[in-house]
Amino acid sequence: MSDILRQNLLSPIALAFALGLFARLVRSELHLPKDVYAGLSLYLLLAIGLHGGVELAHASIATITAPAAVTLLLGVLTPVSSYLILRHLGRFGEQDAAGIAAHYGSVSAVTFIAAQQFVKAVGAEPEGFLPTLLTMLEAPGIAVALTIGVMRSQGGSRPIGDTLHEVLTGRTMLLLLGGLTIGFVTGDQNWQMIAPVFDTKGAVFRGVLCLFLLEMGVVAGSRLGDLRKVGPFLLAFGMIVPLLHGSLGAWLGITAGLGVGGATVLGAMAASASYIAAPPAVRLTLPEANPTYYLTAALAITFPFNLLAGIPVYYRVAQLAHGS
C-alpha cells in the first residue's frame, strides 16, 4: 500500500499540483491566465470525450449496462448520504447541507482523469467507455441535492428546471457528451488523424494535465486560508466521506463487472466533489448556502485528498473486492 501511495505522490501530476500549492503558500504571483486555464480545460474535456467515444463504439451494450446502473445509483446515493451526514452529524443548516451535498453528489472531471492516469500507470488498464459513466454522474447528484434544498427553503428560490438546464448545457457536459458523440460516430480510422493530439494516453494530454494541475494547486492554495473558517467537522467530512463513497464505488464497480482499473476510477468519481458545475448551480438556486463551505471543501480538502491519497486507496479496495 505504501508503495503505491509513494508512486502516486511522485507522479508528475501530483508534483505539479504540489508546486502550485507551494507557489501560493510562498505568495508567488504564479498563476495561469484565466483564459489559458479555460482553454486547457476545454482541451482536456474534449479529449476524454473524444477518446471515450471512440472506445465506446467498441463496447457492447451488455458490458455497459451494469456499470451504468451502478453509476446512476451512486449519483442518487451520494448526495443523500452527504446531506444526511452534514445535517444530522455535522449540524449544518439545511441550505448549507444541501449546497455541500450537491458538490459531493456530482463529479470532478479532473479527479476522473487523475484516477485514469493512475490505474494506467500501475498496469490496471481501465475500460475505454468510462467517460460515458462520467457524464452520467455530473447532473443527478446536483439535481437531487438542489431538490432537497429547495423543498426545505422558505420559497423564493429559483426553479430547479432552470438550473438543471444550465448544468446540462454547461460547457463540461457539452464537451463531454459532444466529444463522446463525435468519437463514437467518426470511427477508428478518422480517430487516427487526431489521436496524436487527443489520445488520453499520449504525451500531449499528459503534459497539458500537468499544466492544468499546477493551476489547480494555486487555486487550492488560495483557499487554504478558508480552512480555518469551515471548522473541524467539514475538514474531516472532506476526507472521510470520499473514503466511504470511493470505497463503495470501487466495490460496486467490481460487482458490476468492471476490472480493477475501471472500478478504481468509478470509486474516484463517487468520491470526488464537483467544483466547476456545482458551485454556480448552488449559488443561483440555494443563495443562503454559504459558498465558503462548499468551495473550500471541494477545492481545498477533497480534491487534494483524492489526488494525493484517495485514489490509491480506492485502487486497493478494488483489488480486495476483485480478489474475493
Partner: peptide
C-alpha cells in the same frame, strides 16, 4: 468578505 466566486 465572502469569496463566493472562483477565482475569488
Amino acid at each position: 468578505g465572502v469569496r463566493a466566486s472562483d477565482p475569488p
